[in-house]
Write a protein that binds this DNA or RNA. Structure first.
Lengths: 339, 339
DNA sequence: CTGTTAGCGCCTTCAC
DNA sequence: GTGAAGGCGCTAACAG
C-alpha cells in the first residue's frame, strides 16, 4: 500500500507539498505539481479517503436507507440517486430497513459511526413511538432528507410525489367513467402518510363530484406487495363485495388484483376497472396494460440529492416537503362503467 | 461531536483504557469498564469508525458493484447480501455499473480509495480489453469475488448458478414436449459467459437427443430487458421465423416475448411455448405463468459473502467458481407441441 | 489492570 | 512556493 509520503520522497518534495499538488491547490509551482503527479501515477498511488476523511472531517459519502430493494420502484430510485451522487463526487452506503423500525434505527446509528456527510431516508411505514434516530442525526449535525414519503409528526426536509393530487386525478377520471362503487387497496394502516395522502385525493374528487365518500370500500392490506393485492381482492369478492373499480396503492398490488380478477373470470375493464400507482415498467407486462399514476422518480431522486447537498454545504433551508407532480397514465385496464 | 477523549476525561481514566473498555477487552477491570460505558452512554458517545479504520487499517465495509438495480433479480441479490453482511457486522457501499466497463473501473478505484476490506463484483457483460481494475485490487491486496457470473479470461473466485445445467434441463424438457425448432434469445454477444454457458446447456441436450444443434435460431439482443425481448420476437416472427418454442436468457425478456406473441395473436403455449430464466416474482404476473429456471439467489448471496469474508480473514483459497444448483420450474407457458 | 507513547495517512496553518 | 509541525480520533504495543 503506497502512501503520499512515499510519493513525496520519490518526488523529492515534502509531504505537505505533495498533498498540495495532488489537490490542485494553485499555491504550488506548475513544475513541482507536474513532477509529483507523474511520480504518483508511476507508483500507482491511490489516495486514502479514510485518512483524508479523518483529517478533513468530511467523508464525501452519504447514507441511503430504503425499505425494500425488490420493488423495482425503489430500484429505480437507487439507480438515480447513485447517478446524481456520483456526478457530485459522492459515494453512498445503502442499507435496507425492510420497513422495520428497529433495523432503521440501527442503520442510522451505523451511518453516524461512519460519519456520513448526510443521509437520505425512505422512512419505514409503521407508526413511530419516538423519533430518537432522527434526533441523533440532528444532535450530530448530520443533514438528512426524506425521500418518496415523509414521516407524520416529524417535520423535516422531504421530496415526494404529490400523492394526493395523483389520487385525485385518478379518482376523478374513474368517477367520470361512471364508476361509483370503488374499492381502494391501501397499506396496513390507512392513517400512515402513503395511504392517507392518497385517500385524501380520492375524497377530494368525491367531494367535488358531490358524491358520498362513505360508499368507498377501503381495504387495508398487510403488505404492499403482489400477493397482498391478490388476496385482498380474492377475499373481498368472495364476500360478495363487487365494486365497479379497484384502485391500488401501487402497481404491484394492482397487478395482484388483476390476477385475482382473472381467476374469478371477471373481465377487465368490462366487469371491473383496475388502476395502480407508480407506473412500473411492469405495468405494461400484463396483457391488459395498467392505468396508473406515474411518479417521476428521476425528478424525485434529483431533487432529493440536490436538497441534501445544499444542506451539507450549509445552506440554511426551511424544513418543508417539496412536491413533485404526478401524471395520470390512462391505459387499458380501465373503461366506462357498463351495466 | 463527542470523542473518546471526552469520555475518558469524564470517566477519569486514560484514553487507552476507555478504548479498551469500549471494545470489551477482558484486560480491563469490570468496575472501570462499567464506569466508562455508563459515561459514554450518558454523553451519547458514538465511536468514529473512520478513525478506527485508520488506526486498524480495516474499515469493516465491503464494496458491491451491480450492473442493474432495476431488475428485481439484482434487487434480490442486494437484499440478501445486505442481510448477510449486516449479520457479520459489515457495511457495504453499493455502486451501479450499468454494464459500462469504464464506470466499473471508476467504481473499483473509488472502492480502493475507500479502503474497503473486500469487494463483490457482478461484472459488466461486455468483452474486456484488459483487466487493470482487477489487477489493481490484487495489487492493493483487496480480496474480491465475482457473483452471479464470472469473467471469461480472468480466473478468480466466483459464485454463480450452474447456468449450463439449468439450460440443459430446460432444453431437455422442451425437446421432450416435442419441440424441435427452438429460438433462443441471448445477450448482445453470444460468447459472453452469461449467454455462452446457457447455450452450452442447450447444446448438450440437443446432442444427447441426437438432434442437430444448428437448427436452433440464436437471436442476439442488445439489452437483456423487456423491450429487447419484445422487439426480438416481433422482428423474427414478422420475418417468417416461427419457432415451436422460445427460450429467453431471463424472465424479463421472456415476458417481453410473451407480450409480442399475444399481439401477434399467437396462443401460449398452444402455438408457441415460452420459457424464461431466473424465476422472478413477476413470472407469475402474466396471466400465463412462466416456465423458468430458478436461480437460488439466497444461496448465491450467502456463499458469496462467506467466501469473501473467508478471504478477508486470510484463508488461502484456490480461485475457482462455486456452482449453485438451478431448478426447473414448470408452469403454464410451455406445453406439448401440437401441430 | 492502567497509563504513556507512538503512530495510522493525510491535511492545514504558519513560518521561511 | 515549500517545508516543518501539529492534529483529526482511535488503537496498539509497552511499561509500570
Amino acid at each position: 500500500m503506497i502512501t503520499l509520503k512515499d510519493v513525496a520522497i520519490k518526488a523529492g518534495v515534502s509531504e505537505a507539498t505533495a498533498s498540495l499538488a495532488m489537490n490542485n491547490k494553485k499555491t504550488v509551482n506548475a513544475e513541482t505539481r507536474k513532477k509529483v503527479l507523474e511520480v504518483a501515477a508511476a507508483m500507482g498511488y491511490i489516495p486514502n479517503s479514510i485518512a483524508r476523511g479523518l483529517a478533513r472531517s468530511k467523508t464525501n459519502t452519504i447514507g441511503l436507507i430504503v425499505t425494500d430493494v425488490q420493488n423495482p420502484y425503489f430500484g429505480g430510485i437507487i439507480g438515480y440517486i447513485d447517478e446524481y451522487l456520483r456526478l457530485e463526487q459522492y459515494n453512498f452506503i445503502l442499507s435496507v430497513s425492510n420497513d422495520d423500525l428497529l433495523k432503521e434505527s440501527q442503520i442510522i446509528e451505523s451511518f453516524i459511526r461512519q460519519r456520513v456527510d448526510g443521509v437520505i431516508i425512505i422512512p419505514a411505514q409503521s407508526p413511530r413511538a419516538d423519533f430518537l434516530s432522527f434526533n441523533q442525526l440532528d444532535l450530530n449535525k448530520i443533514p438528512y432528507v426524506f425521500s418518496t414519503t415523509y414521516d407524520e409528526g416529524w417535520e423535516s426536509h422531504a421530496v415526494m410525489t404529490d400523492l394526493t393530487k395523483g389520487s385525485y386525478l385518478l379518482t376523478k377520471y374513474l368517477l367520470g367513467l361512471g364508476h361509483r362503487s370503488i374499492m381502494v387497496l391501501v397499506s396496513s394502516n390507512r392513517t400512515v402518510s402513503i395511504s392517507k395522502l392518497r385517500l385524501d385525493g380520492c375524497m377530494r374528487a368525491y367531494d367535488e363530484a358531490g358524491l358520498a365518500w362513505d360508499t368507498v370500500n377501503i381495504v387495508e392490506c398487510r403488505k404492499n406487495d403482489f400477493n397482498s393485492g391478490y388476496k385482498a381482492v380474492m377475499n373481498e369478492l368472495s364476500n360478495g363485495n363487487k365494486p365497479d373499480a379497484i384502485m391500488a396503492i401501487n402497481d404491484i398490488m394492482a397487478l395482484g388484483a388483476m390476477k385475482a380478477l382473472k381467476e374469478l373470470n371477471l373481465k377487465i375493464p368490462e366487469d371491473i376497472s383496475v388502476a395502480g400507482y407508480d407506473d412500473l415498467i411492469f405495468s405494461s407486462i400484463s396483457d391488459i396494460s395498467l392505468t396508473t399514476v406515474r411518479q417521476d422518480i428521476a425528478e424525485i431522486s434529483h431533487e432529493t440529492v440536490q436538497l441534501l447537498l445544499d444542506r451539507i454545504k450549509g445552506k440554511d433551508l426551511i424544513p418543508r416537503t417539496r412536491f413533485v407532480q404526478p401524471e395520470l397514465i390512462i391505459r387499458h385496464s380501465t373503461g366506462v362503467r357498463t351495466e
